[in-house]
């Protein structure tokens, strides 16, 4: 559990591009101020491979395969507050463009019929997690407490949101901080 007085925060990227995590890092030197108040559990920056009990969980990206479902449920189970960060987590985002496609035909094309291919075949090893046929937003799988829109949300929006939450205020993103790009 967290060091006295610090909140424990976990973050992960599911079917996302890491752009939301980049935007989180775009708080720049405010990162050091944040570290006075929080400590990290599982995040792409630490070597903790499984999320433990946390105060805040932040998730980028939607759900596109069985492994994403598992990780998402582990976060929900362990985090008091769960945040969907960015368009992909909130709606599925650009990866959900594949939802209207016939996956079989796509696979054929990418792994079998494209020119310049040797040993064309569709990867099917049991080590590869099962893809879901649709990309889902987080709230279709678990309960989500807060949604931050944007692709990605700006660093200022993420900063305002987190500092509100850490100070025990209801997070509010006013004019200029909410963007839907």
């Amino acid at each position: 559990m967290a060091e006295a007085g610090k909140l424990r925060v976990a973050t992960t990227s599911l079917a996302g591009c890491f752009g939301c995590h980049m935007s989180l890092l775009d708080i720049d030197e405010r990162l050091f101020a944040l570290l006075e108040k929080v400590e990290f559990d599982r995040t792409p920056l630490t070597d903790i491979k499984h999320c433990g009990p946390c105060d805040i969980g932040i998730i980028e990206g939607g759900v596109c395969n069985a492994e994403n479902v598992e990780v998402l449920r582990e976060f929900r189970k362990n985090c008091k507050i769960l945040i969907a960060m960015g368009a992909c987590a909130v709606t599925g985002g650009l990866p959900a463009q594949r939802n209207h496609l016939d996956l079989g035909a796509c696979l054929q094309e990418v792994y079998l019929t494209e020119p310049g291919l040797v040993n064309g075949q569709i990867p099917n090893d049991p080590e590869l997690p099962l893809p879901l046929d649709q990309v889902h937003p987080l709230h279709e799988v678990v309960k989500v407490d807060y949604f931050i829109p944007g692709c990605p949300p700006s660093a200022d929006a993420i900063w305002k949101f987190l500092t509100d939450l850490i100070a025990g205020r209801t997070p509010r993103l006013g004019h200029g901080l909410i963007e839907y790009d």
Partner: peptide, 8 residues
């Protein structure tokens, strides 16, 4: 793109 090898 990948494929789905089993049932889930």
């Amino acid at each position: 793109l990948g494929r789905m090898p089993l049932m889930v």
